[in-house]
Design a protein around this nucleic acid. Sequence first.
DNA 1: GTTTGATTGTTAGTAACCTTTACTAACGAA
DNA 2: TTCGTTAGTAAAGGTTACTAACAATCAAAC
Lengths: 396, 396
Amino acid sequence: MTPQGTRQGPGLATERTAPPTRRFASVVRAGSRVTPERARSHNRVLVLQELYRSEGLSRADLARAVGLTRVTISDLVADLIEDGLVIELGLRADARPGKPATLLDINRKGFAVVALDLSYDNLFRGVVTDLDGTVLHREHVEVVDVTGTDAVEAVAALLDRLVAAAQAPVLGVGVGSPGIVDDAGTVLSAPNLGWADVPLQGALAERTGLPVLVANDANAAALAERTFGGAQEDAILVRVGRGVGAGLIVGGRLVRGAHSAAGELGHVVVGTDGGEVCACGKTGCLETWLAIPRLQARLEAAEDADTRRAALAAAGERLGISLAPVVGALNLGEVVLSGPLDLLGGDLLESTAETIRSRTMADSHGGPAVRMTTLGRDIVVLGAAVMVLTGQLGVF
Amino acid sequence: MTPQGTRQGPGLATERTAPPTRRFASVVRAGSRVTPERARSHNRVLVLQELYRSEGLSRADLARAVGLTRVTISDLVADLIEDGLVIELGLRADARPGKPATLLDINRKGFAVVALDLSYDNLFRGVVTDLDGTVLHREHVEVVDVTGTDAVEAVAALLDRLVAAAQAPVLGVGVGSPGIVDDAGTVLSAPNLGWADVPLQGALAERTGLPVLVANDANAAALAERTFGGAQEDAILVRVGRGVGAGLIVGGRLVRGAHSAAGELGHVVVGTDGGEVCACGKTGCLETWLAIPRLQARLEAAEDADTRRAALAAAGERLGISLAPVVGALNLGEVVLSGPLDLLGGDLLESTAETIRSRTMADSHGGPAVRMTTLGRDIVVLGAAVMVLTGQLGVF
DNA sequence: GTTTGATTGTTAGTAACCTTTACTAACGAA
DNA sequence: TTCGTTAGTAAAGGTTACTAACAATCAAAC
């Protein structure tokens, strides 16, 4: 053992032959022992996933896809049918040799998911969907100047109406809320709603008796984009509205952050040339460049079309400047924007893409894809639904 | 279903009630079925992890920690002892009622790990460690103007010497290489070594017959910092040398990126006020502000101590500017620097910390911790060793 | 029209795994 | 000495997934 290695070469050279401290950090979560029972439920999930992804598979198809034997698959499927999660569709139609297969599918219409989006101004929206994320029913409620516990009450009332409207057993409730939301579904901070440390998930779960999952709206949107929008395994979704937020998917998983605040991009300062003063006190925050109210004000002040296009391009450039380090550091493959299509979809988007490309290393793949979401205004509720499907069925 | 939902509220408003495409993205990797055999090997890993983390546990201690019964633990431990991975230390000394426990430990000296660091200028370094990451032996070789297959040959020769020097069976070989390295250990691009699509991992594995793992040097360093340096679950490690690279730990896991290029921060443009021209062709890349040769040139040109301090602070500010969006987006809890302590450790570090704090939302935790690594020049080889321990034993 | 080969799904039996229950060994305290 | 506690082992049992074998069914070849 070399206690104090001699400095060789011109390379990095801070010293100390590390006597590794006996404080290790583990990858595998504690208590994740695998009993046969847990193994089976894991395999159950695999079957569900496979069925979810492509309806109309036979038991034999599942066996090939999952890697278990036909016998085991038959057994698992029997369980799932008994639980009502899977149904038989009938015999396969196409002509091929051998015994015709019995096609299976998840019972897509047999359960409902309730999903809420609290991120609008003065409005809570909610939907009932089936297991595919198809919206079956919509409700909304105006919440002008409603904050604190009144706001929680309004959410609960909306939720009650949605649950009552559901035509099938409700699998669970997903909520996309503005602000910072921790793992347990407590809204740590949501200034617009006057919330601080509000245990929304617990409150709604207790009231409805249903499984409830609460997450940040931009994070939910990112999940939706990943699941229904075809986003890659490494992508960022940027939501532009009254404020600016983001959700990150890294390695196919949603990033939560050290203090559950991942995606809080709005108040990062952009560039080194000043800017407008932000509500947060700093100067040149991304929100001052990009938030819809400010952007609209600038567009209205513009005198001709060229000036308007320049304003949009400038906003896009600022977004690109702040995204470039993130794209470079994470090697993101995709940047997706969500917000008013008429404002974001044109010059702004193009400018963002061009700025990112010119400020990051042009890898052999020509930089990340930059595009608008195709999920429209339902992106948050769809993400909230994904949370339920993942949490309750393990699907996705 | 509302085909074209009416626009309500001033919120986000791009349209279309998403008919979700039947193209889903899954979280669980395909083919990850759990057979009883896999379940047992998983539990074996849990036992190893627990033993690794704190030596001197009894079978009963393990049972409590892992959550399996004493019977099962005894069985697993018998397997591990037979494989030579675990040894009995003798009876517990302290006096308490009941039968005295037989203490166990991983056979820490019974296996060796070989780890290489190819990231120095004109020098390859390698070490032999035990399972704790304690360095037992060092070798190095000068490689001035050695590139391409010659460089691979030099690596292989160094590796042979290290394997020959090992006093215990070699568990595996870890390599930290500059450049972009994919999952399979192929160096996609390492300009300094003249490598492009070099299947280093495969070549070394074939030559030595040992398990080999190759990864980017900064990524390896990040693993070391996470494992031995006490880094948090969400942290970035920035390596400053001839170039600038980084490794990211998100949710406790290393980030690989869409094209295996995560951490390539050196060629991201910083700020909006120009800068020096970079070798890559762009202007104002982080490397032009921060790389050691340029920094040293600026320091030598400085006339007095104040100017030198200002130069260091300016470099730190640039690093902070480019890290701020990353810290904000990922909500990182920690930023760790690796490189020449005399240059990075003082004003530069402070300036980086202050810049990050002033440009991100000051969350209730006062921003990320910013510090130097304590692992010194061995950080990359330690990370390479961690790769082997993780890959071969599942530890960490 | 019959045979052949292929495919599906089920039944029966087996091996692996973890658990429960029960036991022995070993020790401190009363 | 007795009691209570802790460590480790042994035997039996239940769950899980596997292999082997088979009936049902159909297309295609003969």
